[in-house]
């Protein structure tokens, strides 16, 4: 099997190995982890022709520069509107291409988005924990952080040149100004006017943003009465309110239990685009019922499946595409 190797020339903080995650371990204090933007994760694997769910590199706003030191391999980038360059050639932001030893791939923050996924045509050689390579940030368990100087190895590396293409990011991948929330489960800790403020006021994405969660700025959401609440289980997407009334949306590496009340929860299908928000972005919450959120989760699944299915279809080899282009040209010529 052919191998491709990379030297990490630069990796910003919060770049890490992620796979589909390790659900089922919250009862032991372990969140599922996995990609911040699952749509981007699935899209990168689909576009490079991998089976879903494998390990890839999640790139933060800190950016990533890889130099290929051995072999040749195809790759896909999806998620956000990052600046992707291969040597001096600008690709992407969502794209499939290949690189060979001596070439350098750079992924830097671009017009929008906070997280990009970089998948290779092959298998990333990484450590696993509890059967998953997803990195849990605080412990470093799983595939681990990607750090400057380290070597990244892809086993079974394939170029997959027939897949090289530019991908138009779907509009639903972008963060919207309106974010759905299901009120509760600890909304009883808040006065009616505070619950109303959650959906009538504008909040902003704060500076404290990592894989554990993002703090929001805006009006305080004071907890009515005492904060005497036994620790309760926490779901990803919970909007947890601390003692000073500051809401934090808990994300991929969240704590599994917590003693602060959760005023509302952002449903799973809305979290991927939400995670692509940036510090300073305005957020307006819109209350939805659990039933409506579930219905939307199903509709969103179908929309994603259609998008990913189309992405998984290889555009074909260069020769195939030239043949198609000639055919179209031929028809046009014939009409002259």
């Amino acid at each position: 099997m052919s191998v491709a190797r990379f030297k990490v020339v630069h990796a910003g903080p919060h770049c890490s190995v992620q796979d589909a995650g390790r659900p089922g371990n919250m009862r032991f204090g372990v969140p599922a982890s996995g990609p911040m933007d699952r749509l981007a994760f699935d899209a990168a694997h689909a576009a490079i022709g991998n089976p879903q769910g494998g390990a890839l590199i999640e790139v933060s706003m800190g950016g990533l520069t890889l130099e290929c030191t051995e072999g040749a391999v195809g790759f896909a980038v999806a998620g956000g509107g990052f600046k992707v360059t291969l040597d001096r050639e600008t690709l992407g932001p969502w794209c499939v291409a290949s690189m060979v030893a001596g070439q350098t791939l750079t992924i830097r923050p671009g017009e929008w988005g906070s997280w990009a996924c970089l998948a290779f045509g092959g298998t990333l050689e990484v450590e696993t924990w509890l059967g998953s390579a997803a990195t849990h940030a605080q412990s470093g368990f799983g595939g681990g952080a990607i750090t400057s100087g380290q070597v990244v190895t892809v086993a079974g590396a394939e170029r997959r040149d027939g897949r090289a293409t530019a991908i138009e990011p779907p509009t639903f991948a972008r963060p919207g100004a309106k974010v759905p929330v299901v009120p509760g489960p600890q909304d009883r800790f808040f006065a009616p006017e505070t619950l109303a403020a959650l959906t009538s006021e504008t909040f902003r994405i704060g500076d404290a943003y990592d894989r554990m969660g993002v703090r929001l700025s805006g009006v305080a959401l004071p907890v009515a009465g005492s904060l005497d609440m036994p620790s309760e289980p926490v779901l990803k997407g919970s909007v947890q309110v601390s003692g000073d009334g500051t809401p934090t949306v808990l994300l991929a590496d969240h704590q599994t239990t917590g003693g602060y009340p959760k005023i509302a929860t952002v449903p799973g299908h809305a979290l991927d685009a939400f995670c692509q928000s940036r510090s300073g972005d305005a957020v307006r919450f819109v209350a939805v019922t659990p039933e409506a959120a579930l219905k939307q989760a199903r509709a969103d699944h179908d929309r994603r499946a259609a998008f990913l299915g189309a992405l998984a279809e290889a555009p074909g080899s260069l020769a195939d595409r030239l043949a198609r282009a000639n055919l179209i040209d031929g028809v046009t010529d014939g009409g002259d």
């Binding site: 299901v182 779901l235 799973g268 659990p290 579930l294 939307q296 989760a297």
Partner: peptide, 10 residues
């Protein structure tokens, strides 16, 4: 039994 988000019951 409290419905939580799109995918849980507390």
């Amino acid at each position: 039994f409290v419905a939580v988000s799109d995918r849980a019951v507390l």
